[in-house]
């Protein structure tokens, strides 16, 4: 009995991903003999193209460890996690976690978090386009307190015990400039127009922004933020988010009821 298509493809894909397995016996040369070296072309295509997809999605992570190290690490990851979808710009969501437990990278404890910034950057870059508010005109303080903010669709957050934003920004130019201050950083990523921008948020601002995103009213988000940082200024915090282009709209309680 010849193999069914499903059996044939199961054997083919298993051998593709495991270099120690020889090519399936039904994979042949024109003269009918085994085709191990020819099969290796497919194996190489898969491995190299997945490594290149990761290199395209994680350019700063690659700069931090050098291309040879990165490609070896990406190759290990690709062996355990191939893309779930053919949309390769989305490949590597699990890469930061993989890096955090990748022994040869243990000397760079911030590497996984920089990779997490790159996942967020890619998501912000490809997120839906949308309008953003640039002023609070027409809203009084009382209305604002009870209002709910709709975040821009591209808003993403990354929080790290390392200065990940400074490291990321420092690697945008050819010449790397190390962070001047080695401290934890929480980052807001947003793409109101064509470019993704990164903003470091203080602990109060970060809690405020996250609560707003999860749909809390402005005054409730402010109370939580003040609990984390008593010096937090809700008005300044809201303006900062607006200037970043992170707020699509503000719905006031009254107008909401009137709908």
């Amino acid at each position: 009995m010849p193999l069914s298509l499903s059996e044939s493809q199961t054997a083919f894909s298993a051998a593709l991903l495991a270099p120690e397995i020889e090519a399936p016996a039904n994979v042949i040369r024109p003269d009918g003999r085994r085709a191990d070296r020819r099969f290796a072309i497919y194996r190489n295509n898969v491995a190299v193209s997945l490594i290149e997809a990761l290199q395209a999605n994680f350019p700063v992570t690659c700069k931090l460890v050098g291309e040879a190290f990165f490609r070896a690490m990406a190759g290990e990851f690709a062996r355990v996690e191939i893309p779930r979808s053919p949309v390769l710009s989305e490949y590597g969501i699990g890469f930061p976690y993989f890096i955090s437990s990748f022994r040869p990278a243990q000397d760079l404890p911030y590497l996984a978090d920089v990779a997490a910034v790159e996942v967020a950057w890619n998501q912000a870059y490809h997120a839906a386009d949308g309008a953003y508010l640039s002023s609070l005109e027409g809203l009084n303080e009382e209305e604002l307190a009870k209002a709910i903010c709709t975040p821009h669709p591209s808003v993403r957050f990354v929080s790290s015990p390392f200065p990940v934003c400074a490291i990321w920004l420092g690697h945008q130019a050819e010449q790397f400039s190390p962070p001047s201050d080695w401290k934890p950083e929480s980052v807001l990523l947003v793409r109101p127009e064509a470019e993704v921008s990164l903003h470091v948020l203080q602990p109060g601002e970060f809690a405020f922004a996250q609560k707003l995103r999860s749909g809390e009213r402005i005054e409730e988000a402010a109370i939580i933020a003040l609990g984390i940082d008593p010096s937090f200024d809700p008005g300044a915090g809201l303006i900062k988010l607006l200037r970043a282009g992170a707020v699509s709209s503000i719905r006031t309680f009254e107008s909401d009821e009137g709908e």
Binding site: T10, S13, Y42, N45, S49, L50, I82, P83, P86
Partner: peptide, 25 residues
Amino acid sequence: AWSTHENGFLNDLLPLPYTEETLHI
């Protein structure tokens, strides 16, 4: 060609056996 299997997307255009079963699928 085919490029996906149970474990995900293999990112290459892989060869098919030309049989009645493949034709049907």
